[in-house]
């Protein structure tokens, strides 16, 4: 693999930053990426979320993905957990909504109720 020197620099910067702030992740974002999610466009949703993270330089949010949670009709689904709060699932989150969701929920710290989906699943 090429560019590994660049990765070493990224590591150095990350370590310095961590020494300064000592912060753990303040929020976790999960994208449902089962067959149903992918068919509904979850890859573009994830791409939009990662683009926001990169452009806005959000360094304290961890993004991962999971499989089908049984709410296929609401795909693409995105879960956001801020700190120790209850995680909330948001439904039909396309790329445009994903960008809005990140800006409102994680940058402005506002609740986003209009896309909330009730679920008993915790995966």
């Amino acid at each position: 693999m090429k560019n590994l020197a660049e990765l070493r620099k990224i590591k150095e910067r990350a370590l310095q930053r961590r020494q300064l702030s000592g912060e753990e992740a303040r929020a976790r974002v999960t994208v449902a990426m089962g067959t149903c999610g992918i068919a509904a466009g979850a890859r573009n949703t994830m791409k939009a979320i990662l683009a926001e993270i990169e452009q806005r330089q959000i360094k304290d949010v961890v993004v991962t993905q999971t499989g089908c949670i049984g709410l296929c009709e609401y795909e693409p689904l995105v879960k956001i957990q801020v700190g120790a709060e209850e995680p909330i699932w948001y439904g039909k989150i396309d790329a445009a909504r994903a960008a809005t969701l990140i800006a409102k929920r994680l940058i402005d710290g506002q609740p986003v109720t209009e896309w909330e989906v009730q679920t008993t699943h915790t995966s």
Partner: peptide, 18 residues
């Protein structure tokens, strides 16, 4: 190289991967 210095969804790491 990274070890546990940064999560893979760190913006700089994302840029590197992309």
């Amino acid at each position: 190289i990274l070890e546990d210095a940064a999560p893979l969804s760190d913006p700089d790491v994302l840029g590197f991967i992309r």
